[in-house]
Amino acid sequence: MKKTPIALLGVILAVSGCSTMTPARYSVSVDNNMALKSYQGSTMDIVSIGAPEKYDSSCRMMGPIQASDGQTIPQFVNKAFNDEFKFAGVYGDGGAKLTGRLDKIAFSSSAGLTNGWWDLALTLSSANGQSMSVENKYDFKSGFDAITACNQTAQALGPAVQDLIKKTVTDPRFKSLLR
């Protein structure tokens, strides 16, 4: 009889384990494409983006939020920038070499109970000595229960990165990185 409660406890623990929430792959933005068209004739490449000192990826005890394809969030952002550059025809090895650092990666899946946000801060530096920093907070509807809210939070990473890229490439300081 004593083995039954122990076995039942083991099954409950196995079933209630955490899940990893993963967003869809990044998709390029028409708005970002239009903004990047103004840089035609220039080429650019983000070589790498580093991680912040701290980032808590856990979501409501459901498990971590991770980027798609086994990437870290900085790698996801790096690839997203370069995908946008490629789509706009401004990506190239012979142009401006940019490096970056995500100064902040933060999210909430329970702001106002059923809303959420991503807060991403980025510093880009150019080989020409220029740098710039931007921060973007992206708000979205998450959900009440943990499963829905954490899945919605993971899916909101793509649009949050799209907005970060738009804020970056439409900032007048961005052009100084390309000289």
Results as ranks from 00 to 15, higher is better:
117 W>N: 13
122 L>N: 07
134 V>S: 01
141 K>F: 02
119 D>I: 09
83 D>R: 05
37 K>N: 10
141 K>W: 01
119 D>V: 10
166 K>Q: 11
179 R>P: 13
42 S>H: 04
144 F>W: 00
59 C>K: 04
83 D>M: 11
1 M>P: 10
130 Q>G: 03
61 M>N: 14
87 F>W: 03
147 I>S: 14
111 A>H: 09
42 S>D: 09
120 L>Y: 09
56 D>F: 13
168 T>Q: 06
171 D>E: 13
91 Y>A: 12
81 F>D: 04
64 P>N: 13
133 S>T: 15
60 R>D: 09
141 K>S: 14
69 D>S: 14
12 I>C: 08
96 A>C: 12
139 D>T: 15
121 A>Q: 11
140 F>N: 09
36 L>F: 09
138 Y>L: 01
50 G>W: 00
87 F>K: 15
11 V>W: 01
130 Q>F: 13
130 Q>C: 02
160 A>Y: 01
96 A>P: 14
146 A>H: 03
44 M>Y: 08
154 A>C: 10
38 S>P: 01
16 S>A: 13
133 S>V: 05
23 P>D: 06
98 L>K: 04
32 N>F: 08
163 D>R: 09
161 V>I: 07
158 G>S: 15
6 I>F: 08
49 I>G: 09
80 A>Q: 08
56 D>M: 11
75 Q>E: 15
33 N>L: 08
110 S>R: 12
167 K>D: 11
16 S>R: 02
4 T>H: 10
42 S>N: 14
118 W>G: 05
15 V>K: 01
123 T>P: 03
137 K>A: 06
35 A>C: 05
3 K>N: 12
27 S>K: 14
161 V>P: 15
155 Q>E: 15
17 G>M: 10
128 N>E: 04
126 S>E: 06
96 A>I: 01
127 A>K: 09
17 G>E: 07
16 S>W: 06
38 S>H: 11
152 Q>T: 03
98 L>S: 06
130 Q>T: 13
169 V>L: 04
149 A>G: 10
55 Y>R: 06
102 L>T: 08
112 G>K: 04
22 T>H: 03
169 V>S: 06
81 F>H: 03
156 A>S: 15
64 P>H: 02
78 N>L: 04
85 F>L: 15
46 I>Q: 03
117 W>P: 00
68 S>M: 05
125 S>F: 00
40 Q>Y: 02
109 S>D: 12
55 Y>P: 11
100 G>V: 01
95 G>M: 00
96 A>K: 07
44 M>A: 14
102 L>W: 02
97 K>M: 09
102 L>I: 12
109 S>P: 01
129 G>H: 02
56 D>E: 12
115 N>E: 13
148 T>M: 03
125 S>H: 02
35 A>T: 13
104 K>W: 03
7 A>M: 14
18 C>A: 12
139 D>H: 14
12 I>W: 00
89 G>T: 13
50 G>E: 14
84 E>W: 04
166 K>H: 05
134 V>N: 07
179 R>S: 14
54 K>P: 00
139 D>Q: 11
148 T>N: 02
52 P>R: 13
101 R>S: 10
10 G>A: 12
38 S>L: 11
162 Q>R: 10
159 P>M: 03
